[in-house]
Structure formats: structure tokens, C-alpha cells
Design a protein around this nucleic acid. Structure first.
Lengths: 109, 109
DNA sequence: CATGATACCTTGACGGTCTACACAAGTATG
DNA sequence: CATACTTGTGTAGACCGTCAAGGTATCATG
């Protein structure tokens, strides 16, 4: 019932784009990274992650390339495209706008 | 396509509960209030508002009473129940937790 | 009496997330 | 060498909140 969601709906794209901004990563590592950086607060389920990655790729914001992971195994590395960088800016601005607005209401006398 | 959403999915309940914390309000006024306090950033569509109100009522977090509005017309005034007040605290804490976590990632070197 | 604002509501579709699987390769344990 | 765990990718089905679009009715104004 009152299950505290692992994510805020609609923010996964933003989180993924931001995470691979600095360096290309494979899906598994992206999920781990988000979880780690958020101090274990945000949990990215695989059933959310991979559809999101495919969505982002289809929209031309990220592109994939097979390569060898740190553990010596094949993995799909995703990196930002130019359009993806623009999209990241857009989504970041949008998030800041909306979360600030919500905070106006939540932190109200 | 790249339509900037009016809401962050999953936060509408929180916004409504908080808005009627101080004084009971009818649906129309709640929407106006959220829009106004958020500096016109958050727009609550009626197709989102009324289902949400019914949902909240069904879960026992708010209760409705017909009364006369400021304009002299009949309107359904919603107010928080005790359970609603607890729920508001829970959702507020959850929002703070998640938005803080997202900000950790978004505002990263 | 037509228009716009107020006030309530419903319907249908969309889309993102979750739960739960399936598959495969490598690594460690007994 | 069998077992289990970790890494790593992926899909299927369901859930549920939001959106777009519509409907109804009342009241005030022109």
C-alpha cells in the first residue's frame, strides 16, 4: 500500500543522462551509480532501466556501443549525443523549475 | 513531444493535502491555489484533480462536505482527516528524501 | 439570451514504473 | 564438478497517475 516508491516518476531519463555525462557506462553500472550517489535512496529496477535506455536511444539522446567492461565481459556502453546534452540541459532546468515550485507549496507556513 | 509537464508524477496527492491543511477548500479553489502559490508553474488539470480528490477521499485522508462558496454557490469542501494529516507528514518526508537524492545527482561536479 | 466564469464530473488513451520472469557468462565455494 | 552468486542484458504484463477532451449546470454581465 503506502510503499515508498524508489523513483519519482518522470525523472529516470534525467538521472540516466546526467550519470553518463562524464563517462560512458553500461546499464548495470548506471543503476549502481545512481544508487550509490543517492546514498542508496534511489533504486533503479531493471524493468525500468532497460526500457528507459532503449527509449533514450530511440530518441537519439544516447548511443550504444559494445565493449569490454571492467570485469572483462561484454557490455553495452551508452554515451551522450549532442542532442542528448541539450536534452539534459532542458530536463535539468525543468526539474529545477518544478521541484522549486513544489517546495514553495510544501514548505509553506 | 518535449512537452514540459505541468506536474511531477506522483506529487499531486501531496500538493492537495498540503493545500487544504490550513483551511477546507473546494476542488476548483485547490487547483487555483496550487497554481497561484507555485507562481503559475504548476497547472492542475481537472482530469487529474477530481480523480485525485476521489482517490484521497476513498482512502480516508480527506472528507467532503457541501457548503456555500465565496461566490454564493454550492461546492464540495474538502478537509483533512486525522489520517490525512499523518499521510501528509509521510508524503512530505518522502518527497524531501527523494528530491534531495535526485539533487545529489543533478547537481554533481 | 449569449457569453464567460465558476464549479462539478467522466471517459479514453498514453506512458512510465514495477513485479516477475528468462537467459547467459564468469567467479567463487564446497 | 556441482552449486550458487554476481554481473549483465532483456521481455511481458499489470498498475496507476496524468492528460486531452468532452459534458453538465449555475450565476453574472452585457
Amino acid at each position: 500500500m503506502g510503499k515508498p516508491n524508489d523513483l519519482v516518476q518522470g525523472t529516470l531519463d534525467l538521472l540516466i543522462l546526467k550519470t553518463i555525462l562524464l563517462e560512458p557506462m553500461h546499464g548495470w553500472a548506471i543503476a549502481k551509480r545512481i544508487q550509490q550517489v543517492s546514498c542508496e535512496v534511489l533504486q533503479v529496477q531493471q524493468g525500468s532501466l532497460y526500457p528507459a535506455l532503449h527509449r533514450l536511444e530511440q530518441q537519439g539522446w544516447i548511443k550504444a556501443k559494445w565493449a569490454e567492461s571492467e570485469t572483462g565481459r561484454q557490455a553495452k556502453f551508452y554515451s551522450l549525443t549532442a542532442a542528448g546534452r541539450r536534452q539534459l540541459e532542458t530536463e535539468t532546468a525543468n526539474w529545477n523549475r518544478l521541484s522549486a515550485a513544489i517546495n514553495l507549496i510544501v514548505t509553506e507556513a
